[in-house]
Design a protein around this nucleic acid. Structure first.
Length: 427
RNA sequence: CGGGGUGUAGCGCAGCCUGGUAGCGCGCCUGGUUUGGGUCCAGGAUGUCGGGGGUUCAAAUCCUCUCACCCCGACCA
């Protein structure tokens, strides 16, 4: 993609409303634009990241044996009356009426819809277990939206629902999801700590939150310091679960296995939340199957959320410096930036154009800064939007068939031939 | 919802106290210049001063109502 035809309106100055790094940088990098309180447009650059995060989550859900569906954003109040949550949910639920004055709502979650689908089509224990998920926009009319996309009112969420014949089966599903979550976050280069959590309005008796450590996190968690030295790429669920971690509500200093002197406390960003809630929805919504003994039994359910859009913000909180974002390669909007430092120099242009086409042929996602701007502006923009690699070509280096390769994460820069740069990037 | 704050050009702000022709920086447009860390020079465009009502000869400025947004608290992916 050529910068000259792309659309990423970067800002030199920080918009006044942005107080946390991710919000500030998403606005400055031209990833998002606020439409109204807690509601944003995703601009091309931001959307590319959102899609990559979404796809990693999707791949791991699929790999864990889940099936993707797409449920609507708008749901009828009826279903929620059946589960009893229509009146319990409170003002967070955006209630609307259609032209026939029928009560509708913009879904804050989808237990009712999916359980209803299950109840209508799945009748036998032989069809279990089943895990159905969707990645869809949700709306919760937050009392106070803040921190940009981090606590927006509209947000993209992956929500998975497991259906099992027995509580043991449901717990196996629960473990499978925890496992998928660990892999998912590892692919995005962050450790998300599974923290024992309160179950809240979803209900149930077993729940974990996945927290990414960041100063701007909204919840306080207590955890074993060993979490800080885990290797993101080789960590296992067993290892994660063997260590102590609890939210402030559930933290019990009396029975904490970690000595008080070493116990750490920090802020966490909740990027995922999993629940096992048994038959809370299957009974009222009629999700029963015929068991092997010929008796109808309500299915055992769990639900498993990841805040897809929030993950984007959380990744920035975890990966940035003063100059801008430092994307993990797996979610970067482009793998590399190609900087032509002088678009009036024909040798430099020829050299960059040629390199650009070779990258395209090699299927390397590249943002080619071919704009007629000072070099300083190009460096600043590229650092801001945080592509993992930069290839910098000026008239002098072009003349010699050389370029500079910069690693945004480490700041390391090396001079090498364009050919060598191409080979390194292809890997 | 309670408490606090802000609305003036695309962005960041000054002007308001003490009423009198709406300003600065960045960005944008034109021309030139520069080209390895947000170049420099010249010229130019852009405003229902958030909105309604009021006071006044005269309102960005004073009064009043209202809307939006932001921050602090209780809820959540």
């Amino acid at each position: 993609m050529r910068s000259s035809v792309y659309f990423y309106p970067t800002l030199k100055e920080t918009p006044q409303e942005a107080h946390v790094a991710s919000h500030r940088l998403m606005l400055r990098a031209g990833m998002i634009a606020q439409v109204t309180s807690g509601i944003y447009t995703w601009l091309p650059l931001g959307l590319r990241v959102l899609k990559k995060v979404e796809n990693i989550i999707r791949e791991e859900q699929d790999r864990a044996g889940s099936l993707e569906v797409l449920m609507p954003t708008i749901q009828p109040a009826e279903l929620w009356e059946k589960s009893g949550r229509y009146h319990d949910y409170g003002k967070e639920m955006l209630r609307i009426q259609d032209r026939h004055e029928r009560e509708m709502l913009y879904g804050p979650t989808a237990e009712e819809v999916i359980t209803d689908i299950f109840a209508r089509f799945i009748k036998s224990y032989r069809d279990l277990p089943k895990r159905l998920y969707n990645i869809q926009w949700k709306f919760r009319d937050e009392i106070r939206p803040r921190f940009g996309i981090m606590r927006g009112r509209e947000f993209l969420m992956k929500d998975n629902y497991s259906f099992d014949l027995t509580p043991e089966g449901a717990r196996a599903s629960y473990q499978a999801m925890l496992e998928a979550y660990v892999k998912t976050f590892a692919r995005m280069d962050v450790t998300a700590i599974p923290v024992r959590a309160a179950t809240g309005p979803i209900g149930g008796d077993l729940s974990h939150e996945f927290q990414i450590l960041a100063e701007t996190g909204e919840s306080e968690i207590f955890y074993d310091p060993a979490y800080e030295t885990l290797d993101v790429n080789s960590v296992t669920l067993d290892r994660l679960q063997s260590l102590y971690a609890a939210s402030d509500e559930l933290h019990d200093p009396e029975n904490c296995p970690v000595p008080l002197e070493t116990l750490k406390t920090a802020r966490g960003i909740e990027v995922g939340h999993v629940f096992y809630f048994g038959t809370k929805y299957s009974i009222p919504l009629g999700a029963y199957v015929m068991g092997p003994d010929g008796k109808q039994v309500p299915v055992e359910m769990g639900s498993y959320g990841i805040g897809v859009s929030r993950v984007v913000a959380a990744l920035i909180e975890a990966h940035h410096d003063k100059a801008g974002i430092k994307w993990p390669e797996s979610v970067a909007p482009f793998k590399m930036g190609l900087l032509n430092l002088n678009v009036k120099n024909s040798a430099c242009v020829a050299c960059c154009d040629d390199f650009y086409h070779k990258l395209l042929q090699a299927d390397v996602e590249v943002l080619y800064d071919d704009r007629d701007l000072g070099s300083g502006a190009k460096f600043a923009d590229m650092d801001l939007i945080g592509l993992p690699w930069q290839v910098i070509v000026g008239p002098r280096s072009a003349e010699a068939g050389m370029c500079e390769l910069k690693n945004r994460r480490t700041g390391e820069r090396i001079e090498l031939s364009l050919e060598d740069a191409l080979n390194r990037i292809k890997q």
